[in-house]
């Protein structure tokens, strides 16, 4: 399957097992340019594994991950490390635990990829990084070390580090679930801003209000399959599957 006209990414038949445990059973999804796709689902349903597969951090057992204008990797064939890693030219990941480099300042974290990988001139990378940090309200933190920042600030630096690579696709794996509740808003605000600017994003999150406001499409995963997909208004108000309804109930009314 190759991506349709305005599609950026097409994934089909993605499978992945860890030992005996098949955690993805034939995942299909398509992401169009400028679209925000939100992935929801219970713990262990395979959301992280899908994101990691898109970024070449996991090697699926079968299935195709195809970006418009390449690369297109068919995991049903033997895939070289270089082929798999080529997926990273198009996407960048924001991790739940941010994974900033603790021995590097904020600025050094952000310019590491552009300078070391993309061979951007250091001065250019620095001025671009400063502009991005300014955007997320962290201009004055450029010389701080990650441990000197709050969780919300760390995660915003994590986002800037990904943005600095100018990827076509941003992947977010529960970027706010490790944060204190009062810090969640800052990070979601930055993400909403990116969506408004036209960045293409796949976001795993339990923040349904974010999904409702920002997502173009919501996918509900359970047990390694995409059970249901649709526009947030439809999926949240009138889910067609019992499993989706149960999951939404549990999130919206955890005590009932």
């Amino acid at each position: 399957m190759s991506p349709t006209d305005d599609a950026l990414l097409a994934v089909s038949g993605l499978r992945k097992s860890f030992g005996e445990n098949e955690v993805l059973h034939s995942i299909d999804l398509e992401v169009r340019r400028g679209e925000v796709v939100v992935l929801i689902g219970p713990s262990g349903s395979g959301k992280t594994t899908v994101l990691r597969s898109l970024n070449g951090l996991e090697t699926p057992d079968a299935g195709v991950v195809a970006f418009a204008h390449g690369p297109s990797v068919d995991f049903s064939q033997p895939v070289s490390k270089a082929e798999r890693d080529s997926l990273r030219n198009r996407s960048a990941m924001v991790f739940q635990q941010h994974n900033l480099f603790p021995h590097r300042t904020v600025l050094e974290n952000v310019i590491e990829g552009p300078v070391q990988v993309q061979r951007v001139r250091r001065a250019d990378a620095v001025s671009q990084a400063e502009a991005l940090l300014e955007r997320v309200g962290l201009a004055e933190k450029r010389d701080a070390y990650p441990h000197e920042l709050s969780g919300g600030q760390q995660q915003r630096v994590g986002i800037v580090r990904a943005l600095a690579l100018k990827p076509d696709l941003l992947l977010f794996d529960e970027p706010t679930s490790a944060l204190d509740p009062e810090l969640v808003g800052d990070v979601l605000g930055v993400m909403k801003g990116l969506a408004d600017e036209g960045w293409t994003m796949v976001v795993v999150t339990h923040e349904l209000s974010f999904a409702r406001q920002v997502a173009d499409e919501v996918l509900f995963m359970d047990g390694g399959v995409i059970v249901e997909r649709g526009a947030p208004a439809q999926l949240f108000t009138a889910p067609t599957h019992e499993r989706t309804r149960k999951f939404l109930d549990r999130i919206l009314r955890p005590l009932d």
């Binding site: 970024n55 070449g56 890693d85 990273r88 960048a92 991790f95 635990q97 480099f101 990988v117 993309q118």
Partner: peptide, 11 residues
Amino acid sequence: GQWEAGYTIGM
């Protein structure tokens, strides 16, 4: 996660 952060920025 530090390895993965390195990988995701393309290293």
